[in-house]
Design a protein around this nucleic acid. Structure first.
Lengths: 151, 151
DNA sequence: TCATATTATTTGTAAATTACAACTATTTAT
DNA sequence: ATAAATAGTTGTAATTTACAAATAATATGA
């Protein structure tokens, strides 16, 4: 068989590069992780800090500081939860929403362009494949444990 | 249509997390980018610094320092090219090769597990899809330019 | 109910990562 | 031979990261 990692590595690297380059919009300059944070907040409904940091596999302390930056930039709003005042609820400001949407549109525009090199059937197949892959990855138990070799 | 970015984002994040957690092997601890560097050197035949840094979309100065670290760890060898002494040729040491192979095997093991949740036919389809996607991404012209909005 | 444990988030601190600008060394072009 | 271009390194400073410890609020148990 061929090396599957090769395929994945190439694909995710390309997508990663794309993401990296989609982070400067007008005079707002955000980092790659910040764009991921915006994405994740946008996707959810008033998530807590923990929820988002966990979704992104980020240390909560690192995340806390990134959120502080995004709040300073006026892209994210932090609201204490009345029921549990330890928790802060995250949401995008109007500008944050604008940035997130612009990045999203740009990436989809790129994907459209990529898919334009395929037939409609191929496109459907690829999309269905990625969906299936995501489902199976979610099922997997192996993922995400550090390797230990020897003692 | 559904949001394609969502699909890609989820997939690449999962794969990214996996990569991140595959970098501690025995008493050698390398970072995610370092593992990518090892991968890329392993894949090529005595590449130059520029070639690898470009492939990874890394600034050459950052790359230079990372290579210094990897040389210090005894994982990478830097050999001056006789024909052009400005150029350094990169290769893996025995231990570097071992680390790269171990990471590779671990990631493939994970992918095998993921594919075990599919039928053989689905697996074939998914692999073919990703190949196709990679080809089309390579064709694309849109990729990797920073967004500029307004002036 | 009061003390204790747990949970969510922040801050202290220090190391690792990053990248711009300026530099060295070598090669190519005029 | 001199200038321009190329490959890589270092100065420096900002950003990102994460461990440990702190704070603040809630849940639990005698």
């Amino acid at each position: 068989m061929e090396n599957m990692r090769e395929l994945f590595q190439v694909m995710t690297r390309r997508f990663g590069l794309l993401n990296k380059n989609c982070c400067s919009i007008g005079d707002v300059d955000i980092s790659l992780v910040q764009s991921h944070i915006l994405y994740e907040i946008d996707k959810r409904e008033y998530p807590s800090m923990q929820q988002v940091s966990e979704a992104l596999g980020m240390d909560i302390t690192t995340f806390s500081r990134q959120i502080q930056n995004l709040v300073k930039k006026g892209l994210v709003k932090k609201t204490p939860l009345p029921e549990d005042r330890r928790v802060y609820t995250l949401s995008l400001t109007t500008e944050g929403k604008f940035i997130a949407t612009t990045i999203d549109r740009e990436i989809n525009r790129y994907l459209d362009e990529v898919f334009s090199h395929m037939t409609e059937f191929e496109k459907e197949t690829v999309i269905r494949s990625i969906k299936l892959l995501n489902e199976c990855m979610a099922k997997s138990s192996v993922c995400c444990k550090p390797i230990t070799v020897g003692k």
